[in-house]
Amino acid sequence: MLRISGLAAHYGRAHILDDVALEVGPGEVVVLLGRNGAGKSTTMKAIMGLVPPSAGSIRFLGREIAGREPFEIARLGLGYVPEERRIFSELTVMENLEVGRRSAPPGMAPWTPERLFALFPSLGGMRDRPGGRMSGGEQQMLTIARTLMGNPRLVLLDEPSEGLAPVVVERMAEAIGVLKAEGLSILLSEQNLHFARAVSDRATIIEKGRIRWSGTIPDLMAAEEVREQYLSV
């Protein structure tokens, strides 16, 4: 579904990504693990076209998307949920969803506000509330719902558990489980290993802009030295 090879990105003269390779299959949840500043967010932004890749190939549904505009990439069916959430704080919940709305590709049951409120019940009770007056957890749900309104085939979820209370993180994990069951592919970035292993099929570890390890979750849990070295857990 998504296949990345040799991806590189620069900031000024500094390399921030170097020869990154990744793959996400249909219906699969892959987690990108790594410390802060390891290159997780940059990888996501590079896929989305928000950071221009300086080399490499990003193929999505068989099409090369490296170097294209973010809106074109989004229209191909790639959804992006940024780390900082970036809710339109002056817009209501419904209006936030409206901004994300795009028609569904043929053969896919489109996401509607009602379906999303079933997934995130707390949002349903605040349809006309401005995004700026919601709690962090509610905003995190809204930003995922907003992206789903575009009926993406694959979603990039950048650190969805960051800064959330443990109870909310649990609810987030449940929601991701539902999305996976719907057949959505997800590329997740995380620092929270506990959260990551609960929701993912495979893991890729990134450190200083390079991929250091890839494998299944059971493999990762078995490889204590890998976790010690790159995740310090």
Binding site: L50, F71, R75, Y80, F88, G100
Partner: peptide, 10 residues
């Protein structure tokens, strides 16, 4: 409010 995010939403 956030033009980049609007672009990322298609």
């Amino acid at each position: 409010q956030d033009r980049e995010m609007v672009g990322a939403l298609g």
